[in-house]
């Protein structure tokens, strides 16, 4: 599924990373605990999180994650958008909760978690 389709599926807003709209993403990870993201994510996932701070952006950067979705209508700060932009990352915001955002992406065709152990 393309990043553009993720934006559409989540009725979201893209705040940075327009150059990634055509990029294919095949797995997703929903997490608020950044240590979990670093411990278990293997593939290049889209990260859905309710954690809206610079550490979320930096964790994604560490893990070569290019696309972050902030759930439940939370808005990232200017600092965060700047850091994401300078890393070439896409930031999407959605009004949906973590549960509904994950559910919508699953329904739309993302079926794997991109984890080291297949979970």
């Amino acid at each position: 599924m393309k990043v553009a389709d993720i934006v559409q599926t989540l009725e979201g807003k893209l705040l940075s990373g327009e150059q990634l709209l055509d990029t294919e993403i095949s797995s997703a990870c929903g997490a608020d605990l950044m240590s979990d993201v670093m411990a278990f994510v293997k593939e290049h996932v889209v990260l859905l999180t309710g954690l809206v701070n610079l550490q979320a952006i930096r964790t994604a950067e560490m893990m070569d994650i290019q696309v972050i979705v902030f759930v439940r209508g939370k808005t990232p700060t200017k600092d965060m958008i700047e850091e994401a932009t300078s890393n070439g990352m896409a930031i999407i915001t959605t009004k949906y909760s973590m549960f509904l955002a994950c559910g919508r992406l699953y329904e739309a065709g993302i079926r794997t978690g991109g984890m080291r152990e297949s979970c």
């Binding site: 950044m34 240590s35 670093m38 411990a39 550490q55 964790t59």
Partner: peptide
């Protein structure tokens, strides 16, 4: 925890 850390996974992550 507000930073997204503090669940006791840091040192094991470092080791891994």
């Amino acid at each position: 925890r507000e930073l997204g850390f503090g669940a006791g996974m840091g040192l094991p992550n470092i080791k891994r």
